[in-house]
Write a protein that binds this DNA or RNA. Structure first.
Lengths: 177, 177
DNA sequence: AAATTACGTCAATAGTACTGACATAATTCC
DNA sequence: GGAATTATGTCAGTACTATTGACGTAATTT
């Protein structure tokens, strides 16, 4: 069972390289970088009995206070049912509160509490430290080009989600359909 | 239940910003970039009934043909049991073959088949296309600095894993403790 | 011969995600 | 005012990826 006769297909002994112009170097770097990038907050979350899903919800509720459940689902690209458990836990543990929408009372606007804001900051801190260190190590002033690269990696039709953030409401105003 | 009296903690209505020097912009960009980066292969994998775990195994077996199960576990940072099912499926479907280790016959060296190599390439292609497009959009010649940044994001003690790859065996030879 | 190592496997569990269905309340449409 | 639509919540069932712990087997090392 451990060695295959020949019906199975012969082993290829050469490493896959940048044949066909495939950029394996950066593909692999993204994997390693993201793996370690998320490992920082994962350790903190474990103390709370939370997972990565809680982190993402907490992050976006802090970034866009007052967003509705529907908007959050759209950003996270998960389903209502997946969000339900996570959101309920965050509300039960007093990290997030719901308020009735002012215009539409069916809507639940989500806001962080002081506790939720503190946790979001605690989770972001080691990540930010890692980013700063990496920016310095990689030769200083490239920050803008790193940002442009990452932004360009996002699906164009979803880039609007990025522009919603507070710091970036410059005079962009693209599209209103 | 939907509106909180006051025992719960008051809602914070201001968005979290780069207070405390936290780099939320890049934190968020990394989330969006990685989300969309992995969405490409995810769609292909679904056709095979595979998940992201299969992709990772397939990738590294193609990148380092002949690696052992133990080495693969170390790179992926998962447990033997998590790998077991995934690896078995890839072997059963003829994407990967095991060979007895030449020196140590207890070891199983993992190799891709032609089928496994083809799938690895198919999965990498859209990712590579996205990377190239992003590199161009973000202003050309920054490729080296992007690589340096991503590499610097990886935990220093784990950077050795990156250097194992074929294309990079230059004269580095750091450490042989 | 005994201990260790590499691997495989079984059992039980958890976290995150999914689809589909249904309920409730609020808004909008007619 | 009644009907359709919308926003949200919830229940049931399922799947994938991951976990820990225990045990077995074969091969190597001591």
């Amino acid at each position: 069972m451990t060695d295959q006769s020949n019906a199975a297909g012969k082993p290829i002994r050469t490493a896959i390289t940048d044949e066909d112009g495939i950029d394996f170097a950066i593909i692999e770097l993204l994997f390693f970088a993201y793996r370690d990038f998320t490992s920082d907050p994962d350790q903190i979350l474990a103390d709370y009995g939370f997972g990565r899903a809680h982190h993402r919800v907490l992050h976006f509720v802090n970034r866009r206070p007052g967003l509705t459940v529907a908007e959050l689902l759209d950003v996270l690209k998960i389903t209502k049912q997946s969000l339900a458990r996570v959101l309920k836990q965050l509300i039960d543990t007093d990290h997030i509160v719901q308020l009735q929408g002012p215009r539409d009372r069916r809507q639940r606007e989500l806001y962080p509490t002081a506790k939720g804001r503190a946790l979001a900051l605690a989770l972001a801190r080691p990540q930010s430290r890692r980013i700063h260190a990496a920016l310095e190590d990689s030769g200083a002033a490239d920050r803008a080009s790193i940002e442009r690269f990452l932004e360009a990696m996002v699906n164009p039709e979803l880039r609007a989600q990025i522009d919603i953030v507070p710091a970036k409401i410059s005079g962009k105003s693209h599209g209103d359909h």
